[in-house]
């Protein structure tokens, strides 16, 4: 499991972020003292650091700069400072992303995922094996017993999201928010159309029974 280190001096906030990342498939750790922040971070050696700028002792931008001298660990800066200069400075010091408080946690999670995916390039396969079928992300297809069917960009994303949340009812709004996050601003009707098409494609692979509609609640992939 990938380790995420939260360097934030507000105790409540760091605990909540810790809970959130632990709930979302990561192992989150926090720093509780800030006397030897840089050494502590390097010793823990996480896969990714969430770093606040205003910290007791050394400030986040300095820490960022120092860590970059010794390591390539991805760093996401989380701060209340909402101006271009701080953002530029942080990026110049080697931060990978700059997010301002109060942040949208889903965006933070998405950024974390994408950074880690990139830094693990090669290790992670571009296929998702979902037992009954395989999703091939690189050429946007779904495969079952050698039979291959092409999916559109949105269909692929919907199927991927449902697969990641398998056996859970996923509300329509949640799917839409997920798609909006990747900048396809589909509306309610388009989602219905996409789901219908996806279901037809699943039918071609005799998988239609997997995707169920829960009236008034959403969809579930069984």
């Amino acid at each position: 499991m990938q380790k995420i280190l939260i360097v934030e001096d507000d105790e409540k906030l760091r605990n909540e972020i810790e809970i959130f990342f632990n709930n979302n498939g990561y192992k989150a750790e926090t720093l509780k003292t800030f006397n030897n922040t840089i050494q502590d971070i390097l010793q823990i050696n996480p896969s990714l650091i969430l770093l606040d700028i205003n910290l007791p002792g050394a400030d986040g931008q300095y820490i960022c700069k120092e860590i970059r001298k010794q390591s390539n660990i991805p760093i996401i800066i989380i701060t209340s400072r909402n101006n271009e200069i701080d953002e530029l400075l942080s990026i110049n010091y080697g931060a990978d992303h700059y997010i301002t408080k109060p942040f949208n946690i889903q965006i933070l999670l998405a950024k974390t995922n994408s950074i880690l995916r990139r830094s693990n390039m090669g290790k992670i396969q571009d296929q998702i094996n979902a037992k009954d079928f395989i999703i091939n992300l690189s050429n946007s297809t779904i495969i079952k017993e050698g039979k291959e069917i092409e999916l559109t960009k949105n269909e692929l994303k919907i199927l991927k999201y449902l697969t990641e949340n398998r056996n859970k009812i996923v509300p329509r709004e949640e799917i839409m928010e997920y798609l909006w996050e990747s900048e396809s601003y589909i509306d309610d009707n388009t989602l219905t159309v996409n789901i219908t098409r996806l279901r037809n494609k699943l039918e071609e692979l005799n998988l239609k029974q997997l995707l169920e509609t829960k009236r008034g609640q959403g969809y579930i992939l069984k």
């Binding site: 507000d10 409540k12 906030l13 809970i19 959130f20 989380i78 209340s80 408080k101 109060p102 942040f103």
Partner: peptide, 17 residues
């Protein structure tokens, strides 16, 4: 404004969890 953003972020995190 800088100060108030941390409790706001914390509240949003509590809501998320």
């Amino acid at each position: 404004i800088h100060e108030i953003k941390t409790p706001l972020a914390t509240s949003k995190m509590i809501i998320e969890n």
